[in-house]
């Protein structure tokens, strides 16, 4: 979901960029190894939610760019929705005295 969301708001992006972005927006709270991102990207790509293409980075480096597909956008919508519902339920349970 984090990857999908990142690609949704940033547009096509390479692996390093995605890792950096996730670290930044989470204020470095999510201290995952950047390496774990790649198998995850592959898994998402296999499901058809993102597509990859080789491109050139802003400072002229060859990099693989990932972009959200139509199916991916739909999936993101669903996941956000179910997350909202889930967290709402949990919140309600926690706040109830």
């Amino acid at each position: 979901m984090l990857v999908l969301k990142t690609l949704d708001s940033m547009g096509p992006m390479h692996g390093f960029g995605i890792a950096l972005r996730i670290q930044q927006v989470s204020d470095d709270l999510l201290q995952l190894n950047q390496g774990t991102l790649y198998p995850a990207l592959l898994r998402i790509e296999q499901r058809g939610w993102i597509a990859s293409k080789w491109g050139v980075s802003e400072n002229n480096r060859k990099a693989k760019y990932y972009s959200l597909t139509h199916a991916g956008r739909k999936q993101l919508g669903q996941e956000v929705e179910s997350w909202d519902r889930m967290s709402a339920v949990i919140n309600r349970v926690l706040r109830t005295t």
């Binding site: 390093f16 950047q34 790649y38 060859k62 990099a63 693989k64």
Partner: peptide
């Protein structure tokens, strides 16, 4: 080869940063 290139590019970008 693809994987090698991708990870290498990641490393280079990270080092550069």
């Amino acid at each position: 080869d693809d994987l090698d290139a991708e990870l290498r590019s990641h490393m280079e970008m990270a080092i550069e940063l």
